Simulated assay, not measured.
Amino acid sequence: MELDHLVVGALTLDQGVAWCERVLGLSPAPGGSHALMGTHNRLLNISSPAYPRCYLEIIAIDPAAPGPVGRARWFDLDQPSLQQALRAQGPGLIHWVARVGQMDAALAQMRSEGVDAGEPVAAERGDLRWRIALRQDGRRLRREGLPTLIEWAPGGPHPADRLPASGVSLQRFEARDGLNVWLDTPRGDVRLSLLA
């Protein structure tokens, strides 16, 4: 299991971009839309020697897209408590996603430990293909800072491989008693903690 990406939630993508420019000192690269979930994103390469192939995703509900059918959006984006926090505090770090090589085995291991991490769901954006573990209720795994699991298509592209160097690099990451990350940025050292 490796850190794949950090997730910053925002009420709107424009607010997320403004947050990135203000807090990290630069504008994120274009992302795209997720038809499966009715969300859209912007991306920022934060790879470093300690955390290769790592990026930051700024995500928001896409007002121009229909919502998902029969399930909630990922990362608690449909939850009133998260929407209220984003309204009150602005964009912020809401979750992390871990890359695994064998999704089914990883989920079986988590189930054996009493953790409902969801079921693998196929997703795509452009030519990117992946499977992501999702619960029907869309809830993040808050217990012990557990991540959402992702398995990229074998031999296929990964977002970080295409993103330009950003000048932001992940220096440290902790997900034991909450979620904390330390970034080297054009604005100096920046610490992000889980949005309350």
Results as ranks from 00 to 15, higher is better:
residue 3 L to N: 01
residue 3 L to Q: 01
residue 11 L to M: 13
residue 12 T to L: 08
residue 14 D to I: 08
residue 15 Q to M: 11
residue 15 Q to I: 08
residue 16 G to K: 04
residue 16 G to V: 01
residue 18 A to R: 15
residue 19 W to I: 05
residue 25 G to M: 10
residue 38 G to K: 07
residue 40 H to F: 07
residue 42 R to C: 05
residue 44 L to A: 12
residue 45 N to K: 10
residue 45 N to A: 13
residue 46 I to P: 12
residue 46 I to V: 15
residue 47 S to Q: 04
residue 47 S to D: 10
residue 52 P to R: 02
residue 53 R to S: 12
residue 53 R to V: 05
residue 57 E to D: 13
residue 58 I to F: 09
residue 63 P to Y: 02
residue 65 A to L: 15
residue 65 A to D: 09
residue 67 G to W: 05
residue 67 G to N: 03
residue 74 W to M: 13
residue 78 D to A: 00
residue 79 Q to G: 10
residue 81 S to D: 14
residue 82 L to F: 04
residue 83 Q to C: 05
residue 84 Q to C: 09
residue 85 A to N: 09
residue 85 A to F: 08
residue 89 Q to T: 04
residue 101 G to N: 03
residue 103 M to V: 08
residue 106 A to P: 07
residue 107 L to M: 05
residue 108 A to G: 03
residue 109 Q to T: 10
residue 110 M to E: 13
residue 110 M to V: 06
residue 110 M to H: 12
residue 110 M to S: 09
residue 112 S to D: 08
residue 114 G to Q: 01
residue 115 V to P: 00
residue 118 G to I: 01
residue 122 A to L: 12
residue 126 G to L: 00
residue 131 R to K: 06
residue 132 I to W: 06
residue 133 A to S: 15
residue 137 D to V: 00
residue 142 R to W: 10
residue 143 R to W: 14
residue 147 P to D: 03
residue 147 P to V: 01
residue 156 G to Y: 04
residue 156 G to R: 00
residue 156 G to I: 07
residue 162 R to P: 02
residue 162 R to T: 06
residue 164 P to F: 08
residue 166 S to E: 05
residue 167 G to S: 12
residue 170 L to F: 04
residue 173 F to H: 12
residue 176 R to D: 14
residue 177 D to Q: 14
residue 180 N to T: 15
residue 181 V to I: 15
residue 182 W to H: 14
residue 184 D to W: 11
residue 184 D to I: 09
residue 188 G to R: 11
residue 189 D to E: 15
residue 191 R to M: 14
residue 193 S to N: 12
residue 193 S to I: 11
residue 195 L to A: 13
